[in-house]
Computed example of a mutant assay.
Amino acid sequence: MMNIKNKIEVNGEITVIYLKRRNSEDVKTIVDTKNLEKLKELGLTWTAKWAKNTNRFYCQASKYLGIINGKPKYKTANLRPRTFKENSKNRKGANSNAKTGVRNVSFSNKKYIVQFMYQGKNKVFGRFENLNEAASVAEKIRRKLYKN
């Protein structure tokens, strides 16, 4: 069994994990003690990062913890080490800042553009007048590239 590389304090049903911060004091986060074994199995170092858009800290692992089949990643059963690339394949829906509301479809110069990051490069798969047509093409390409 591996161990969490952070300092931890077990206090009954609650465990405190001290998150490392660069050039600053540690930040505490609280987890259920019943989840501690799962976290130890991952054997990761946890750090605190500041999110300017929400004015809050968030917890970041030394390896990317992925989503299983598009399920919310905050559920303990869904945590598993993954690369960003592997995790992107399981993501559902568009980014929260997507203007079209459709994953892999953007809008520019009065056209809907279907584009993907594939093999480390951004590839455009077509420009369309109609959002529904672009969304349909994006879905077909996603199935072909990611074989979901």
Rank of each mutant, 00 (worst) to 15 (best):
Y74I: 00
E9P: 07
L42I: 01
S106I: 07
T47F: 13
R22H: 10
K71Q: 11
L79M: 15
L145F: 10
E25F: 10
N97T: 14
G12W: 08
S136A: 09
K38W: 06
K73P: 13
M1T: 14
I67K: 14
T100N: 03
I8L: 05
L39A: 00
Y64S: 02
N109T: 09
E133F: 05
K34Y: 13
I4N: 04
L44R: 00
N53L: 05
G126W: 05
F107G: 00
V10E: 12
N130H: 09
R127P: 01
F125P: 04
K28I: 11
Q115T: 04
A135V: 05
A51G: 06
E13C: 06
T47R: 15
K121Y: 05
K71N: 13
S62F: 11
K49S: 11
K99S: 15
K123C: 05
R142S: 07
N55L: 12
G70R: 08
P72A: 03
L131Q: 04
R127T: 12
D32W: 12
I17D: 00
K5T: 04
D26G: 05
A138M: 03
R142V: 06
R80Y: 10
R142E: 10
L42A: 01
V10M: 03
K34G: 08
I4V: 07
Y118N: 15
N95P: 01
N23E: 14
A77D: 13
N11V: 02
V124D: 06
D32S: 15
N35D: 15
K28V: 11
I113E: 04
P81T: 11
N6L: 06
I113S: 01
E139I: 13
N55M: 10
R142I: 09
A138P: 06
N97C: 09
Q115H: 08
M1Y: 11
T29P: 00
S106A: 07
A135G: 02
R21T: 12
R103D: 03
E129W: 09
A138F: 03
Y146I: 13
